[in-house]
Simulated assay, not measured.
Amino acid sequence: MSNPSICSLYPADIDCSGPWLLHPESPFEKLIPSLKKHGQLVPVLAVEESGKILLVAGRARVSAASKLGLDVLVRYIDAADDISKAVLHLEENSARLADESLKLSVVRFFAARIDAAELPNIVAPLLGLKPKSRDMKFWLDWMELELEYDELLKLGHIPLAAVSVLIKLDEPDRTALVRFFEKLSWSRSNAVNFLTWLYETSRRENKSIVELISAPAFDSAGESESPKDAVSRFCKSAKELCYPTLSELEKVHCKIVSEICAGTKWRVEPVGSFETGEVMIQTRFKNREMMEKAMADLESIFKFSGWEDLFELGRDK
């Protein structure tokens, strides 16, 4: 017995432009061999409204059928509004990978149409998240940011976790920070640390971030500076603003260590950010010859007088 909810239509008769079609269309070319050999095995989903056939899921199948000049099998479903259509669209495509760009589009779509209090319970399951998870909170907070940041997130220039700090800032400060992410891709830790250090300095000194980043140390990267070096410079500058005493100790430490360990592969690092007055010394070797050289170097640097200055750094702090 035939199913009355399924019919055959020309591809051109199906409207594939609905805003609820949140997943980008997947390449339809890979479906063509199967359509030629077996025909359309799974109908697309659609609704009929005001004499129009509106697609809910199956754009690649419609495109492939159109390319081959074939009719499309359509299954009519009940979806009274855009929200219902979006939910069915996402459920139908649940096996597809949801990247940050898609998640952003989904949350923006629903945030514009439903109450914020309902958003987690409706959207989280569609994205594979728990309604009360940290990531869901990040997405809710992201809805408060300017649309400029949406593009940066889609490009992978700024991580979602950065919103944990951005949401605390005034709009002028957030706008001023956009330039740091326009041409550089930041890791989660670098972005969160950079923004946190600026935020904490701003609060401590009662200065806007706009004022803080006007210093030459925060000038945009030049042509000769690599993206990695630019991010490192910005992070270092923000950290020095936030922890001036610690930054000065690190500079002195590096100077002393460079003299102590000159010509060797030994490294000396403070323990606990100079809070303990202790240091850790280490190196690596992969054979006995390298080990003998390392031990000889260790005996040599043991005699260096700069050790006392190094030990005093922690005590002076």
Rank of each mutant, 00 (worst) to 15 (best):
C7F: 12
P11H: 07
P19A: 13
P19E: 11
W20N: 01
W20V: 00
E25M: 15
P27T: 09
F28G: 01
E29N: 11
E29P: 05
K30I: 15
K37T: 04
G39W: 00
V44R: 01
V47T: 06
E48M: 11
E49C: 06
I53G: 00
I53N: 02
I53A: 02
L54C: 07
L55S: 02
V56R: 00
R59Y: 02
V62M: 13
A64I: 12
K67S: 13
G69S: 09
L70R: 10
L73R: 06
V74G: 00
Y76M: 10
I77V: 14
I77M: 12
D78A: 07
D78S: 05
A80E: 15
D81I: 06
D82Y: 07
D82W: 09
L88A: 08
E91C: 06
A95H: 09
A95N: 11
L97G: 14
L97F: 10
A98Y: 09
K103A: 08
L104G: 09
F109K: 01
R113M: 04
D115P: 02
V123C: 08
P125Y: 07
P125E: 06
L126P: 03
P131K: 08
S133W: 06
K137M: 12
D141N: 09
M143W: 00
L147T: 10
Y149N: 02
D150P: 01
L152A: 04
K154S: 02
K154A: 03
G156Q: 08
I158Y: 00
K168S: 04
V178Q: 10
V178F: 05
R179L: 14
F181M: 03
L184P: 01
L184K: 10
A191Q: 05
V192R: 03
F194S: 01
L195V: 03
R203C: 13
E205F: 05
N206P: 01
N206W: 03
I209T: 05
V210F: 04
V210Q: 10
I213T: 02
F218W: 09
F218Y: 10
F218M: 10
F218C: 07
D219H: 04
S220K: 11
S220I: 09
S224N: 15
S226A: 13
K228Q: 08
D229I: 04
A230G: 06
S232A: 12
F234E: 05
S237I: 03
A238S: 15
K239F: 07
C242I: 04
Y243M: 04
Y243C: 03
P244C: 06
E248C: 08
E250M: 05
V252E: 12
V252S: 08
I260R: 02
K265M: 14
V268H: 04
G272K: 02
S273T: 06
E278K: 13
M280H: 14
M280G: 04
M280K: 15
F285R: 00
R288K: 11
R288W: 13
E289V: 12
E289S: 09
M291H: 09
E292C: 10
E292A: 13
K293T: 13
E299T: 08
E299W: 07
F302P: 01
S305E: 15
W307K: 08
D309A: 12
F311H: 14
G314E: 07
G314I: 03
